[in-house]
Write a protein that binds this DNA or RNA. Structure first.
Length: 293
DNA sequence: CGCATCCCCTGCCTGC
DNA sequence: TGCAGGCAGGGGATGC
């Protein structure tokens, strides 16, 4: 599912029911997801109050009043649902254990205030970890992350400086979380389209011969910001299994200009190009070969 | 260092 | 209808 706008949307949805509340019970139904759960995962969280939820890159961080922060990564298919029906609540048990509906519910968080937050992840590419608040930024998850694309550290100068020595394709450069954190396949495709830049262009060509930012860098920064801002405002993109934590659907997928639109006419005014699908790094890229250079 | 490839796991869609 | 194959929003390991 999730790139930055989807994770941001989920984070906001969870914040409403988790912030300020205490964890009455944490139910963990298996020993691992993508990675093993940390030792005594449920025990270390039980009884703690959730102070604040925030997002960094594609992670959700839940700060608690205890020594550990809960770090969540949704992988490809992770999602949260919020259950509020009092009738569905059987302490320490999953709703689906009782009602028998869905598989792949791996963790449940029971909170004061009456909500249960359930993590479901069919592919189990997501994971959870516990990290001390003071060492979050230096943790293995965050130590190599680039700047937030919507934050102050991401600008034309950063792009130019980072890309200047890179021989890789622009697509791969933007997917690399060390360069900028939070973009994934969809929003890279959409941002490159908005910027009029080819996904096949060498990253180094964004900078001038002295490694300084060009207009292309500025256009790319503006394109990334605008597409992310709009996607967040739309509640993210709902493809296949993605939903917001409250169960409602994002609708930015209706605004895709190129993603999953191979064969469609290019939407750039005056452009007669056709959206093409190519494969880069074994993943689909969608672009207009005519107006993206 | 950069890049391609494979892999983790499951579900869904397509085409035969 | 059934089944095989391809594909998927992430990201880490490996080998060239």
């Amino acid at each position: 599912m999730p790139e930055l706008p989807e994770v941001e949307t989920v984070c906001r949805g969870l914040a409403k029911v988790m912030e300020g509340h205490r964890l009455l019970a944490v139910v963990q139904r298996r020993a691992d997801l993508r990675f093993p759960f940390p030792d005594r995962f449920a025990e270390r969280l039980t009884g703690r109050r959730i102070i604040q939820l925030r997002r960094r890159a594609k992670f959700i961080i839940a700060e608690t009043d205890g020594p550990d922060c809960l770090m969540l990564h949704l992988g490809m298919s992770g999602r949260f649902t919020i259950q509020t029906e009092a009738a569905a609540h059987v302490p320490g048990q999953f709703v689906h254990d009782v009602g028998g509906i869905s598989a792949h519910d791996h963790v449940a968080f029971d909170l004061t205030g009456g909500c249960r937050v359930v993590y479901n992840d069919p592919r189990r590419f997501g994971y959870m970890d516990l990290v001390p608040l003071a060492s979050i930024e230096t943790s293995k998850h965050f130590a190599h992350l680039g700047p937030e694309p919507l934050g102050p550290g991401f600008d034309a100068a950063h792009i130019a400086a980072t890309a200047a020595s890179r021989r890789q394709d622009l697509k791969a450069f933007l997917l690399d979380q060390r360069n900028v954190a939070g973009l994934g396949n969809i929003y890279v495709c959409e941002a490159l389209f908005r910027a009029g830049l080819s996904p096949r262009r060498q990253a180094a060509t964004l900078a001038d011969r002295n490694g300084r930012p060009t207009l292309r860098c500025a256009r790319l920064v503006a394109a990334i910001r605008s597409v992310l801002d709009e996607a967040i405002a739309a509640g993210g993109s709902s493809l296949r299994d993605y939903a917001r934590a409250d169960g409602s659907l994002g609708y930015f997928q209706h605004a895709f200009a190129v993603y999953d639109r191979a064969g469609a006419p290019c939407s750039t005014p005056g452009c007669t190009g056709i959206v093409r699908r190519i494969v880069q790094s074994a993943r689909s890229t969608f672009h207009c070969p005519r107006c993206q250079r």
